[in-house]
Design a protein around this nucleic acid. Structure first.
Length: 691
DNA sequence: GCAAGGTC
């Protein structure tokens, strides 16, 4: 019997694959603590194991927190890593064990560059390179039974090497740019005395910061220009109505004055138009839209929404939330899910409405697609644990959106009357909802109704007055987290799973403040300013575009590892001179970053003037090693970098005298009852001559 | 300690 190990990207996918490829049911076998699905399919023994996203990551081969650094390698995600998960090690061991007993390894991770790379790394490092020739690749875009079976039968006989290389390339370029520039910024700050703060920048952080910085400049340099808005107040059967000037905003003062001069007491109804429009229900959520709506309606942050969705997913209440899709494939039992939702008291009425509308409800399809997952939808599972606060709100939002997407359109009628007053045209508008449709189920969209009077063409209406209001142009509004996420999505910055997190990083670096009305801090502006001079690539979306373009062009052809290395080297070529410039200008950059508000803070005992720069020399203790040493106060502003070691034992007493050989202060040290005098300069020319 | 990308 042929034995096959299938590697999925994550537990949920592994389960679906196992059940799709099973003739007689699925068993779970434990290898150590790791569960693995076992099944038989068309006379083959199948094991399905899963990774948990990337199990391997790029690390620096050797050396410390320095730059430039280009020596990198792939390594199992370590406990030091932020993304470490304690099950990683066991998972790898389990996969390695089963791999030894099978005839073939099938990579069945998501079909994108990260998925191909995840699978490749598992084969290479968990199993060993010799398994490459036994490895194949299953390609599918949804986790439905039919597609999975087809994908298994028609799998590629080898790994998809060009896609793997594309994935490696993306990781390497991001790492080299991000780590080096982040270190260069952080170490500049350290040079001028701020030893706490970490700065960062990267392919996604950079353009996002720049976007916000440009908006900040726009707002601060906006020159308000005058414009006018005109409206006529008319009276019909004793009721007042407002008709807006038909030409929109008036930019010429002359025109505004002309309208102001209207004295006619009557308006003539020139034309009436009535339009009935239908608005289709919104499609079910993808992650981005869920995050935006949760923020708009409940002010729940995108990060929080993701966290809650993940929890709901683990409780089996909703489908996989990290999806870009706004579509529910036909293979999902929509009717069954809705029936189950109907068993919950709070949704009974809504569900009844849906079935009155259609016996076979079908969610409308949105534009978003995703290679691996359908749109977010409830599973219909009973809510066992009582959901609290925000959890409840998010769950309810998902349920309502899903139900609404199966319901009928909203219908409204819009009426417009064109009024002529002394040759100037005004518009009288009315809006009436004829049928709320899906709005009854998803009531979070505001449609304001406006009554329309009973009038006919040719009628004369009484004009109470014509108002002309002077206004001034305003700058574009500041971003909030929601609009920023949307903008990033449009620009192709980050992915659905990382965008919210990256915005949070920008806040934690203190580049940004006030999430509801985002302002760029002085520090954020400085980082953007400095990089736009020294390394504009990191602030431009072009880096993302280039990487994408290279990947798109090459993954369909034969992108070899040699070729990848050449591309990475070419892409990071310019970085070398950027980094050496940053190193040379560390102090300038640091000073510019800390700005005028920065107050260097060093506590220590003064012992006399520094012979190099004239500032005070201080005795301080290292936070890290607890050892005492001498530092020049000038180091806090970057103008000096003198430090000197001290004996660690004994009581030290300043003598307020300077060394006759080098000008450094002299100190006395008392230890074990003896006192001796020494020069604080470790390289004092007088050291050998006994001071 | 620093990126961006998967995932728990």
């Amino acid at each position: 019997m042929r034995r096959i190990l299938i590697i999925a990207e994550k537990p949920s996918a592994a389960k679906k694959i196992a059940y799709a490829l099973s003739d007689k049911g699925v068993r779970i076998v434990k290898v150590g603590k790791t569960p693995i699905y076992a099944t038989t399919f068309k006379g083959q023994q199948i094991y399905v194991a899963y990774a948990m996203g990337h199990l391997y990551n790029i690390v620096q081969k050797s050396g410390g927190w320095i730059f430039p650094v280009y020596n990198i390698k792939w390594e199992r995600t370590s406990p030091k890593d932020r993304s470490y998960n304690e099950r990683i090690k066991e998972t790898i061991q389990a996969i390695a064990k089963i791999a030894r007993e099978v005839d073939e390894i099938v990579v069945a991770c998501d079909y994108d560059i990260e998925g191909s790379l995840i699978g490749y790394n598992v084969v290479k490092y968990a199993c060993g390179e010799k398994y490459f020739k036994k490895s194949s690749r299953m390609i599918f875009s949804t986790l439905t039974r039919n597609e999975l079976r087809k994908a298994f039968d028609r799998r590629l006989k080898t790994l998809d090497w060009p896609v793997i290389e594309a994935g490696k390339m993306r990781h390497e370029i991001d790492w080299i740019f991000g780590i080096n520039l982040s270190r260069a910024l952080t170490l500049s700050l350290r040079r001028v005395g701020d030893r706490e703060r970490i700065l960062s920048i990267g392919r996604v952080q950079g353009p996002t910061l720049k976007l916000l910085a440009e908006r900040e400049i726009d707002i601060n340099t906006h020159v308000p220009l005058p414009y006018w808005k005109a409206r006529a107040i008319v009276e019909i059967n004793g009721v007042k109505y407002v008709a807006e000037y038909a030409g929109g905003n008036i930019e010429s003062e002359e025109k505004a004055l002309e309208i102001k001069k209207i004295r006619d007491k009557y308006a003539t109804v020139k034309k009436i138009e009535r339009k009935v429009t239908k608005e289709r229900p919104p499609p079910p959520f993808n992650l981005g839209e869920l995050q935006r709506e949760a923020y708009r309606i409940y002010r729940i942050s995108p990060g929080k929404t993701l966290e809650i969705s993940e929890k709901l997913y683990l409780q089996a209440l909703i489908s996989y939330p990290r999806t870009g899709s706004e579509q529910i494939p036909d293979s999902i039992d929509v009717k069954g899910i809705i029936e189950k939702l109907g068993e919950m008291r709070e949704y009974r009425d809504l569900v009844q409405k849906i079935f009155e509308h259609s016996k076979r409800p079908k969610p409308v399809k949105g534009k978003g697609t995703d290679p691996a997952h359908p749109a977010i939808h409830p599973t219909g599972e009973k809510v066992n644990i009582k959901l609290s606060g925000n959890d409840r709100k998010i769950y309810d939002l998902i349920v309502r959106r899903f139900l609404a997407s199966c319901y009928r359109s909203m219908t409204k009628s819009e009426t417009r009357a064109l009024l002529d007053i002394e040759g100037h045209l005004f518009v009288l508008k009315g809006v009436e909802i004829i049928d709320h449709g899906w709005l009854k189920i998803y009531p979070f969209k505001k449609v304001t109704e406006k009554p329309f009077p009973r009038i006919v063409e040719g009628m004369k209406l009484k004009v109470i007055r014509v108002e002309v209001e002077e206004k001034y142009t305003k700058p574009k509004p500041r971003y909030n987290v929601r609009s920023l996420l949307k903008k990033m999505e449009n620009l192709g910055l980050g992915t659905k799973a990382t965008r919210a997190e990256i915005i949070e990083i920008l806040f934690s670096r203190r580049y940004l403040e006030n999430p509801n009305n985002i302002e760029v801090t002085d520090l954020g502006m400085k980082v953007s300013e400095i990089l736009s001079k020294i390394c504009p690539e990191i602030l431009s979306v072009e880096l993302t575009r280039n990487v994408e373009q290279i990947i798109d062009e090459l993954k369909s052809e034969y992108l070899t590892s040699e070729y990848r290395k050449v591309i990475v080297a070419n892409t990071v070529l310019g970085l070398y001179s950027v980094l050496s410039k940053m190193k040379k200008n560390e102090i300038n950059i640091g000073q510019s970053l800390v700005g005028k508000d920065f107050k260097p803070h060093v506590e220590g005992k003064p012992i006399g003037r520094c012979p190099v720069c004239g500032n005070q020399l201080l005795i301080v203790r290292s936070k890290k090693t607890k050892k005492r040493f001498i530092v020049c106060y000038g180091r806090t502003t970057g103008e000096c970098d003198v430090t000197q070691p001290l004996p660690q034992k004994g009581r030290i007493r300043p003598l307020h005298e300077t060394c006759k050989y080098c000008g450094y202060p002299l100190l006395a040290c008392v230890s074990k009852g003896k006192e001796w005098v020494f020069c604080t300069n470790i390289r004092c020319p007088g050291k050998r001559k006994n001071v």
